[in-house]
Structures are given as C-alpha cells and as structure tokens.
Design a protein around this nucleic acid. Structure first.
Lengths: 156, 156
DNA sequence: GACTTTTAGATTGCACACAATTTAATTGTG
DNA sequence: CACAATTAAATTGTGTGCAATCTAAAAGTC
C-alpha cells in the first residue's frame, strides 16, 4: 500500500479513478438492469432489496434493515412510507422499546414473493457468472465496503 | 451459468442478492467516503468524476462525458449547470454540430486540479489494496457492467 | 433518582439517477 | 431535395441517498 503512495500521484489518480468509477457505473447499471423487471411488480430497486430482506424475516426494525442495506433512516423512512402506502408493508411502534418501529408484511406483500422469484432467475442470466465468481467478487466488494465504512466512522 | 439456473430458485435468490447488494452498498460507501474530502473542494462525488474527465481532456461533449461515466443527459445537464454556476466549467454550443454542447474548464476549474491530487492519494489508503487487486476487481466489474448495459440496450 | 449520553426514527434540504418526453439539428433514403 | 429516422441536450416528474437536525425514548452515571 505504502509503495503505491510512493509511486506518484499520476498513477494513483488512474488507479482510484478506475476502481471507484467501475464500482459507481456498475452499480448504476445494476439498478437500470433490474428496473424493467421490478416495474412489473411496482417496485424500485431499493424497495425490492427491502422486500427481499422482509421475505427472509418479518418484523425487523428500521435499524436492522438499514444495517443490512447500509442505509440510514433518511433514506429508509420515506421509502418505507411508500411501501406502506402501496399496501405492501406495515409499520408499528415496538411496545417494549418505543424508539423502534417494526416493519411487517401485509398479505399483498407476502404474496408478492412468489412473483418476485422470477427476478433473480432472469437476472442471473444477465450477470452471467458462476457461483464461485459471484461469491469471490462479493466478498472482495464487502471487504472494501467495510474498510470504507470504518474510515467514515473513524472520523467522528 | 445454465447449471446455476438448474440449481433452484432458492440458491439463486441468495446469489443475486449477495452480489447485487454488495455492488449497491459498496458504491454508496464509496460516495460517502469521498464526501468529506470533496466537500473541502466544494464538489460532490459525481461532480468530481466529471472534473477528473475534464482534467484529462477539455472540450468534451456532454455525450462523451456521459459515455465515460455511464450517465445520460437527464443527470448530466443539471449537474453541468451547477458546475457552470459555481464557475468551474464553461458550456458552449458546437458551431459545426449545433446539437452538441462542448464543456470546457475555467481558470478556476483548471487550477482546482492541483488541490484535487490529494484526494486519490488519501483514498488509496482507505481502499487499501494493491494495484493488481484494484485492476483485477475493476476489470471484473466493467465486464459485468457492459453485460448489464448490453442487456438493457437489447430490450429496445 | 436527576442528569447526561446514547440510540431510533423522522424531517429538511440538496443533489443525484433515470424513465419519459420534448426540441432542435443532422443524417439517411428514395 | 423532400422527408423520415436518428441523434444531442434539455426538461419533467419520481424516487432515492445522505448530511444535518430534531424529537423522543432508553441507557448509563453519579
């Protein structure tokens, strides 16, 4: 790492530009690629991620969902209100800890899961990589993400 | 790839969730990690990417910049207007092809480059990976991005 | 047990992203 | 050369992301 810093600003500029731009533009492309299939369900991409989290486990708090998706309440609060207003989820205060809001699924939200199964099946053909490749790429990205998040937290 | 489809919807749901969520949350983390350093320059992360593109070559069209960053005019037009209003760039119609708008740098925009050199130097410490790792990860992501973009274009 | 600190969530303000549409200029075709 | 098709930007509308702030509840401290 230190050697990289020594190798000069010019090559560093390239390095970081390449990698951060690759992450940025790939992420945008993922969202766009999902969009037509999710629009058929009436979901946006982040809304879909929230629904997947809830299909795995109902009754999670906003905080728990936010930790899983790395999103804060500034993003999740309005998103969850939209999902509530479209009748897919429920929001209720935890009676034990009244700071928390528990997110549940409505019958509509629960039954959407079956239709949503088609999305990852179709998308896997677009991603077009083996399970090993996907797992390897995923772990490299998550390692990097956690380093980035740690550096943000360290600044406070 | 075909084997993955055969392996059942359950494992596919995991696969795609893991990979697309990793890309999504890492991309958001990258933006957040850059933010404090870019705020010192008065730039957002996408604005910084545009400036980097212009420091490499002045006088590009909106389309050219959009191709490099995978962004369309819906995103770039207002972003470029903000950079113009803060006095970093210039926008003028191409006299040869009047559909095009050529983006140039002001003296302020040009001189910002020196101060911006510190950003990738600082960020490389946060990314904390070797040049080889970065190049490998980058190429895997760009391959995937291009497959995703191709699948979107194929639908039209 | 009063008081400080921390935590969960909501709100506000700003800047993206992008689908869809519009306008204007250029290119392609007969 | 007329005229349809394509292309480059801008615009509109919706939904994020996130910093900063606010409110309220719970946890820690003495």
């Amino acid at each position: 790492m230190e050697e990289l810093v020594q190798s000069g600003a010019e090559s560093l500029l390239k390095l970081e530009k390449f990698l951060c731009l690759a992450i940025y533009s790939t992420s945008n492309a993922v969202t766009r690629a999902y969009q037509p299939r999710l629009a058929a369900l009436g979901l946006t991409y982040p809304q879909y991620l929230v629904m997947v989290a809830l299909w795995e486990e109902e009754g999670q708090t906003v905080k728990t969902i936010g930790d899983k998706l790395s999103l804060d309440s500034g993003t999740l609060s309005p998103l969850l209100k939209r999902l509530e207003s479209t009748g897919l989820i429920t929001r209720r205060r935890d009676t034990v800890d009244e700071r928390q809001v528990l997110i549940g699924l409505t019958e509509n939200g629960r039954s959407m899961r079956a239709r949503a199964e088609a999305v990852p099946i179709a998308m896997s053909k677009v991603f077009d990589c083996t399970l090993d490749e996907a797992i390897s790429l995923r772990s490299k990205l998550l390692e990097m993400r956690d380093r980035l998040l740690a550096s943000i937290d360290a600044k406070e």
